[in-house]
């Protein structure tokens, strides 16, 4: 079985070579003619004002946080699913899964009620978050 992981490693190296080869190969042929207008950020022919790496919307951060919580929970479901078929006490195994899934689902409902899942928050939700 470890041999298979070696195969993955070899595959990874092949992939890196196949990606880098065209990138490097082109450097031998392609022209290089930079000038100022080519070097400015593309903003539909407007001269850009300031940099682009600014603070961005808070909602993306909230989404990422919720994702991490749920992803950790879903990872825990995989071992359960793996043994479910061969488990001697099917009813017990199902009950355990049911309890876990219910907890995950209530977590989702909580986020839903808080309004964190809505991209456009309603006024009611907004006031509750502020208050």
């Amino acid at each position: 079985m470890t041999l298979d992981y070696h195969a993955v490693l070899v595959f990874l190296i092949t992939g890196i070579v196949m990606v880098c080869a065209p990138l490097v190969m082109g450097a031998l042929f392609r022209p290089n003619n930079p000038y100022r207008e080519k070097g400015i950020p593309y903003e539909c022919a407007e001269d850009p004002i300031g940099g682009a790496q600014v603070r961005f919307d808070m909602r993306f951060y909230t989404t990422a946080l919720i994702f991490i919580v749920f992803d950790a929970e879903i990872v825990l479901i995989f071992p359960w699913a793996h043994v479910f078929k061969t488990h001697p006490e099917k009813g017990l195994a199902f009950a355990a899964g049911l309890v876990f899934a219910t907890i995950v689902f209530f977590g989702l409902l909580y986020d839903w009620a808080k309004g964190d899942l809505s991209w456009v928050k309603t006024f009611r939700n907004k006031r509750r978050v502020q208050g």
């Binding site: 950020p41 593309y42 919307d57 990422a64």
Partner: peptide, 29 residues
């Protein structure tokens, strides 16, 4: 890229891909 359109696209992409990854993982369980 340090440019406005790519920045917007990149941030959107990250939010979209992580959101759908959950359902993707769960659907094969």
């Amino acid at each position: 890229s340090n440019s406005r359109y790519p920045m917007l696209g990149g941030v959107r992409a990250s939010a979209q891909m992580i959101s759908y990854e959950l359902s993707l993982g769960l659907s094969v369980v």
